[in-house]
Every structure is written in structure tokens, then in C-alpha cells.
Design a protein around this nucleic acid. Sequence first.
DNA 1: TGCAATTATATTGTGTGCAATATAAAAAAT
DNA 2: ATTTTTTATATTGCACACAATATAATTGCA
Lengths: 140, 140
Amino acid sequence: MKDLLKLDNQLCFPLYALSREIIQRYRPHLDEIGLTYPQYLVLMVLWENDKQTVNQIGHKLLLDSGTLTPLLKRLEQKQIVLRQRSTVDERVVEISLTNMGIDLKKKAKCIPEKLIQELEITQEEIDSIRSIADKILKLK
Amino acid sequence: MKDLLKLDNQLCFPLYALSREIIQRYRPHLDEIGLTYPQYLVLMVLWENDKQTVNQIGHKLLLDSGTLTPLLKRLEQKQIVLRQRSTVDERVVEISLTNMGIDLKKKAKCIPEKLIQELEITQEEIDSIRSIADKILKLK
DNA sequence: TGCAATTATATTGTGTGCAATATAAAAAAT
DNA sequence: ATTTTTTATATTGCACACAATATAATTGCA
């Protein structure tokens, strides 16, 4: 009878360890452009569509204001994004890229390929992880 | 030409989001026995082999003393583990389960099955994630 | 033996994550 | 038009992660 409380039999531990490990592999590359991994994710959202509300960013990254507000303030301090209260709806804060934020995309462009090479991961493996993640995350 | 800086094309983001999501699904169950997810992982290591050093635990969970020392102190305060300096080698701190820590295993026993059911994940999917994780993590 | 290098843990500081709560604005209901 | 409810963001508090550094004990080597 398999012991489900053994680490080797866990579902989440490999995900948790792998996710931290890959973020570590990103670090040297992200250090060069002065970003943390979550900050890089936020910028990826903005590079795809500039000017989004805190809510929209949080919805895409599954992060709440408790995480995003201080993160966005740090990006604002680094002059990478602007935070502006909407005049139409005063509750909303709109986040947009500065020129520096826009330029960062060029410097970040090479990072994903480098990672894939360093990790020696195949496209099938990436797709496999993504399809499992999509299935579970969409249950929400 | 696929934009590798799009969130949809990321390798790590699904892992990062899925790992956080699953830890959230654990929360209500772990709340009942007063543990966080990383604390639960430490206990799983100790349930399998009682009395291990901080180093041994850290090696299995890929966590360093900066994370483990305060976490273990919290487990000690809750009287779930003991922390004792080895008399043979004064640098080493040995972590062992208290009776309360041993008893917790019974209460935790049902958690993994519940999670697998709630997530509606198959054994193939679990194995697939684990084999990819093992491959990348063993490169270290 | 004596001293340099290594090892094990602890500490400090920064940046997440996230629950719980607060605040203020907008929308809905009466 | 008020009141109630909902919505968007911010704040607080706690627990990780992890880099960098510190400290003390042990090992290895000249």
C-alpha cells in the first residue's frame, strides 16, 4: 500500500520545487535588466497590451492587490511604469509603460530562448505542463 | 513568428501559477491541523525518517537555512518538533518529532487523496509532471 | 601543532503571496 | 434621492524564499 504522505508520491511538491528552480534559473538573466520574476511577468502582460488596470493584470497573473500594489509601486519607483487613477472611475488605477518600460522589452527578448536551451526542455514537455495547468486552473 | 514574451507561450508561468493554485487548495485542509504548506512538507520528510539535520531536510526540499531556521522555530513553538544541537558536532542542529508531531501524521493521512479528488487529476498527469520535474531538478 | 579552508546554522534585508480588513467610489435597490 | 450593495485598490500582518553575510565548529594540510 503506497504511502501518500511520502514526498516521492506528492503531486504538488515537484511543481513547487520546479517552479522555484526555474525562477532561479531566470534570476541571472533578470538581474541584468533589474527585474524580479513577478515583475517580469507583469511587464509581459503590459508589453502585450499597454495600459491595463491593476484588476486586469491581477486576473491574468492570478495575483491580488496585496501582492500587486507594492510590486507596481516598486516598478513605478524604477520609472518602468506609470500608475494613474482613472478620471472616469476614481476607484481604478491604470498602469502603463514608460519609455523605459517599453525599451526593456528589447533587452528581455532573448531571455525565453536562453532558458529553454539551458533547461534542455522539449516543446512536448512544455505543452504537456501547460495543458495540465490549464485544465486545473480553469476549474476556478 | 511566435512571440516568446507572450504569457501564453511561457514555460514557467503555468508552473508558477499552478503551484500556487494547488497550495491554495491544500490550505483549508492544512488549516484544520494548523500547518502551512512548507511546514507540511517538512513534516512529511520527518514522518518518513525521524531525526534529521537542518541540512538533510533542506537538501530534500531544496530550501536553505534562511527559510528553514525560522520555519523550524515556529514548528518548535507549536511543540511539533524539537531542535537540538548535536553533541558530536556542535554545528549541527537535529530536528525530531514530538509526540504531537508524530500524532499529526494520522490527521494528515487523508489529505493527499482529498486533493487528488478535488483537482480531478489523473495518475498519468501526476507522473508526467513528476518526470519532467525530476529531469530538470537533477541537472543541478 | 597551527592555521587556512570548509561546513552548518543563523541573521539581515528585500520581495513576494495571501488572508483579513479598510476605504472610497460606483452601481443597484428601494 | 437615500440607502444598500458591490467593486477596485490599499493596508496590515504573517510566513515564506533567497541572496548576502556572520559566526562558530570541524577538517585538512603545510
